[in-house]
């Protein structure tokens, strides 16, 4: 089968934690420009799957290929520099820096690469980076809070800021681990709109979500994970109609 536009290919991945088979025989292809949702009950292995993709965990066996390059064995910063950014399930932010600084740092990573001894120029003089960060904050609705310490934001705002930190890098692949958890309905809807907007720019996304409203408004494809295995995948309609999924996960929550 010709698969010219597969951006991320997870091939035969297994992950064991001692006796626990957290991921079993995962085979997943994410296509360019699509939003691919991964759903499944708590403990299904969704976060573990993302951890394997970004190099936080090494798979017990199998490989992850991104755009022709094998990711397994690469360092987290190398994987990011290839164009993969991630929003974590528990926000990973710079709590004691300001919101603006939080967003400027990833912009610098994008511009300067993994390491650059940029000692003598002042950060304040980097007006393009600053303007870019401010625009990004405007997009996620945090511009008014740019001088606040990131640690004092609410949980929902932290997630939005973390999303901004990823988006400013214009990654080719964005991995989102429950991006709307802890948000109000209103903020969730704003985030959905934002994610739809990026989609129109052609960014590929993998999104883990419990909120079915979010999943069905965004996803082009859905994979259902249960006990470390993919039990179904396909378009939202196919998945919705799949009796196995109804039984394992959706139950009666979605009509």
């Amino acid at each position: 089968m010709a698969v010219p536009n597969v951006v991320l290919h997870v091939a035969d991945v297994h992950k064991r934690f001692g006796g626990l088979h957290a991921l079993a025989d995962i085979d997943l292809q994410i296509e360019e420009g699509q939003t691919h949702a991964i759903i499944g009950p708590n403990g299904a292995g969704k976060s573990t799957l993302l951890n394997v993709c970004i190099g936080k965990l090494a798979p017990t066996s199998g490989t992850v290929v991104f755009d022709g390059q094998v990711l397994t064995g690469k360092k987290p910063h190398e994987i990011n520099q290839l164009g993969i950014a991630r929003v974590f399930q528990t926000p990973e932010i710079f709590a004691d820096l300001s919101v603006l600084q939080n967003v400027m740092i990833p912009a610098l990573a994008k511009r300067d690469g993994a390491f650059k001894l940029n000692l003598l120029r002042s950060l304040d003089s980097q007006t393009t980076i600053r303007a870019e960060a401010e625009d990004m904050l405007e997009d996620v609705g945090l511009f008014g809070r740019r001088d606040t310490l990131a640690g004092s934001l609410s949980r929902g705002d932290k997630r939005r800021m973390e999303l901004a930190m990823c988006l400013i890098q214009h990654p080719r692949l964005l991995l989102l681990d429950e991006p709307t958890a802890g948000m109000s309905r209103h903020d969730t809807n704003t985030t959905i709109e934002l994610l739809k907007k990026i989609k129109s720019r052609g960014m590929t996304k993998v999104i883990i979500e419990h909120d079915m409203h979010v999943v069905f408004s965004l996803a082009d494809k859905i994979s259902v994970l249960a006990q470390g295995r993919i039990i179904a995948d396909g378009t939202p309609d196919e998945v919705r109609g799949n009796p196995k999924v109804q039984e394992a996960y959706l139950g009666g929550t979605h009509q």
């Binding site: 970004i54 936080k56 910063h77 990011n80 950014a85 974590f88 993994a114 890098q169």
Partner: peptide, 8 residues
């Protein structure tokens, strides 16, 4: 976060 942001 620095590592996952692409910094060595």
């Amino acid at each position: 976060r620095m590592n996952y942001t692409g910094f060595n």
